[in-house]
Structure formats: C-alpha cells, structure tokens
Computed example of a mutant assay.
Amino acid sequence: MPATEPVRVAIEDGIARITLADPAHRNALSKALSDALAAAVSRALGAGAAVLVLDAEPPVFCAGGSLEGLLDPRHGLGAMYAGFLALADAPIPTIAAVCGPAVGAGVNLPLACDVVLAGESARFDPRFLDVGIHPGGGHLWRLTRRIGYQGAAAMVLCGDALTGAEAAAHGLAWRCVPDAELPEAATRLARRVAGRSAELVRRTKQTLRASEGLRDAAQAVALELEAQQWSVEQPDFRERVAAIRDGIAARHAQSGADR
C-alpha cells in the first residue's frame, strides 16, 4: 500500500500484520481509516493469511471515532463500522496488540478480535457518553460478553477505564506484557496459529463461535463430534499421527541404544 494510506499490511509466513498508521490523527476511526482497515483484512484473507495481528503506530492505539466523520452528513454512522466488522467476521484467528489508549469506538477494534494482548501502557476507555453519543457497532454486546454486565456498566455508564494490567485481570485482555515485549508476544501466538492446519484452525474457530449460542452440553458434544469426525478424515491428521509415532519409535530406539 502507498505510504499515505492510514493502514499498512505486511504478510509473511502466513501472518498478516495490520497496522493503524495515522498517528497524526491518533489513529481515529475516520471513514477512510475504517474502509482501509476493511480492505486490509480482505487483502490478507485473499493472500491466504492464516492469522491476523492488529497493532498501531504509537502513542495512541485508536482515539475512537473521528469527530469530523461523526458530524459528516454524507455518511451514515454504520459506514464507520466497516473496519472492525471486517475483523469480527474474519474466519481466521485475530490478535490485537494494544499499546497506548483505545478510546471510544477504538475499543471496538480489540473487542472484534479473538485474542487481546495489552501492553502496560494500554488503556481501555469507552467514553462514548462523555461526548454525548450512544455506544455503537455492537460495543455493549461484545464488552458484556468479555467482562460481564457489571463491568460493562462500570466502564460505559460510570466512565471507568481499565489499564492493560486491569484489562487482563478482568478478561478484556488475555494477558498484559511490557510494551517492548508486546510485538514479539503477539508474533509468538501468531506463529503457533500459522504452524497448524489452516483448514482445521478455521473449522475450530467456526465451532468456537457456534458454541457460544448453545444451550447445553449435549448440543456441544454433537457439534464437536461432527467437526472432530471431519478432522480425523483429513490427510493432515494421518500425517501428524504418523510423525508422532515415528518420533516415539525413534526415541525408544535411541533409549535402547544408550543402555
């Protein structure tokens, strides 16, 4: 992408790193940035990426919705959702590496991802009501699913905010690490994804999503049985089992020779 684009994409070894790159505007969710983010996700998927890592140029992860965009009568509010909805709908794992503040609609970006890693400088601050606007884009639904009703009420209604460490403690982030370690922490998780069967990862994410709407364990067993049966019929399963067996046999042979 040209350097002037508000979002950069780099794809290597199955890992697509998508970077919000408009620090002059604190990576605010203008329509241009949101559209560029949606295009970046589409590009990564089209290139066969196995996993997406979302990060941002410092010092602010995302300052929320662009005020100019919110006041622009040419675009409906829904037009601002394209970027984080593309993340939320991605069929492959998505990892947000949050360094610095995520404010207002900017919190929707990590909420749209499967896994959130927070740097120590991260701050999650919805702040919608402070600017007189109702939360949008599924913010309340996603936030409640992460931290529960009380947590969502504290953050959105009462204006509480969470640091990176607090976000990890409350379930909004998976873990909090020093800022300098955040890129490698995200890459380490992404490498694990990229080293697995792409079809199996996609199918497992699909099942994980479907599991959220189930009512009881029996439904979960049936859902997973179908997917598990599919997996054992794939060539990758047989190849990996054969490799494990060969490895065990080699270790036993080496152990016998050492005696």
Rank of each mutant, 00 (worst) to 15 (best):
G69A: 08
L70D: 09
D72K: 13
D72T: 13
P73S: 06
R74D: 15
G78V: 06
M80S: 15
Y81E: 15
A82T: 13
A82C: 08
F84A: 09
F84C: 09
A86Y: 08
A86T: 12
L87E: 13
I92S: 07
P93T: 05
T94K: 02
I95Q: 13
V98H: 08
C99V: 01
G104M: 05
V107C: 15
L109P: 08
P110I: 00
L111C: 05
A112T: 10
A118W: 11
A118E: 11
E120Q: 12
E120D: 11
S121H: 11
S121E: 12
A122C: 12
R123C: 03
R123D: 01
F124V: 00
D125T: 03
R127I: 03
R127M: 10
D130C: 02
V131M: 14
G132E: 10
I133R: 15
G136Y: 15
G137R: 11
G137F: 03
H139Y: 10
L140N: 05
R142F: 07
T144W: 00
R145D: 14
R145Y: 09
R145T: 06
I147K: 07
Y149H: 15
A152Q: 06
A152N: 01
A153D: 07
A153W: 03
A154L: 01
L157W: 07
G159A: 01
G159L: 02
A161C: 02
A161I: 00
L162D: 13
T163P: 11
G164P: 01
G164V: 00
A165P: 04
A165W: 05
A167W: 11
A167H: 11
A169R: 15
H170D: 13
G171D: 04
G171A: 06
L172R: 01
A173K: 05
R175E: 14
V177W: 10
A180Q: 13
A180F: 04
L182A: 09
P183R: 05
P183W: 07
A186T: 14
A186Q: 12
R188L: 06
R188Y: 02
R191G: 10
R192W: 06
